[in-house]
Design a protein around this nucleic acid. Sequence first.
DNA 1: ACATTTTGTGTAACTCATACACAAAATTAA
DNA 2: TTAATTTTGTGTATGAGTTACACAAAATGT
Lengths: 227, 227
Amino acid sequence: MQQIRLAVDAIIFGYKEMELYVLLIQQKFGSQNSYWALPGGLVKEDESLIDAVKRELQEETNVKVNYLEQLYTFGDDITRDPRNRVVSVAYFGLVDPTKLILKADTDADNVAWVKIKNVPNLAFDHNEMITKAIMRLKDKLTYKPIGFGLLPEKFLFSELENLYTTILEKEIDRRNFRKKMLSFGIIEETEEFANKKSGRPAKLYKFKYSEYQKLERDGYHFEIKFA
Amino acid sequence: MQQIRLAVDAIIFGYKEMELYVLLIQQKFGSQNSYWALPGGLVKEDESLIDAVKRELQEETNVKVNYLEQLYTFGDDITRDPRNRVVSVAYFGLVDPTKLILKADTDADNVAWVKIKNVPNLAFDHNEMITKAIMRLKDKLTYKPIGFGLLPEKFLFSELENLYTTILEKEIDRRNFRKKMLSFGIIEETEEFANKKSGRPAKLYKFKYSEYQKLERDGYHFEIKFA
DNA sequence: ACATTTTGTGTAACTCATACACAAAATTAA
DNA sequence: TTAATTTTGTGTATGAGTTACACAAAATGT
């Protein structure tokens, strides 16, 4: 009789002020006590995988995501969990900075947004999961307009630009970037201005998801690249 | 106590003479008796996922693959297997036409290469798996040189070209295709000629995998597109 | 030898990506 | 109130890469 346990884990990214964050939890009790880890846990008998991730996220962090997709299933290292054979389906998700606020710590858990550069040694193979998720994020940013999942509904063009430069770690020419982005017709200029401390006032923009869906149906291909 | 079962399934593609095939089995006994299905089965306690796929392929079909990667984990439909809760990690693989020969049927199974266009209603959600695998194959063909996994070691340029037109269902300009393909420097011309029934004799070519690895290390990006 | 099949090759037009600089509108400091 | 600072917003010329396109060469079969 098979005794493999099935878990889900979530790599949730947040972005704010030129920094990429990942959502981590610390179980106050349990075997891998002091380690930080990704939110996740065992799948219930009568629960779909995606529901399991959402439930764990809700229970452990109270974060709601803008975007969520299956990343990879980790099950080649038999001893990735030293206690039992556990295979974990990892999901990767994006939240906007308005949600970079966490509920007060529960009795059992600490929750924190940690800068990608400062991620410590995590429990299990969770560092590997994050590495894989970052690769996916970088790749996908260039051929799907998922970056908007990391921004508030209305955003500055400069925020969008900085998001790309930050995550891809590349320079971008502002004029070319704007030209390319606008050429898809999936971004709408609003009449509102952001209140900023300094510099010329800037209009807020919105991502038109429905326009993008239309393009996708027509087989149109989003793609944004840099030298 | 969790009672979810964990399985693997394999979507294995073969290509020959302008046709794309998928490898199917038919269990002669068992509950979903007469249905054809993908090769696959439960993962053993002490077995990695990838080993499980390879073992099942070996046991059920005796086919060795040129290329194998994890595709997707199917576990959102709780009743995808009507008997038990089974979550299945699907892998997608490629074999070259020299291997499009199958061992004699075992006592328990029929095995067959079935043209993509002729795939019948399969057991479980296996049609869905194939659909997803075809999408992945089409996408990946354009940005990774995996097509060679469907060809013999030495092949004609026209075979490579036909493989692309067949799978992507698009026309290609022969001159542009050749120019682009050769521009990567990952294809080598041999001194051998193929024996064909008619037409001008054609040289055989080889895929230089090591050259491609070198390019990849240098961050070079393979990409082949069509109008 | 003539028809048929399939391979192998070059160039011109055009599209798209890239490189590049300065004025405008606000805030802050002198 | 003037000047310095910060950030937004915009156009064009060059070059690289993609696309479109046609015919001769080498074999086999009739």
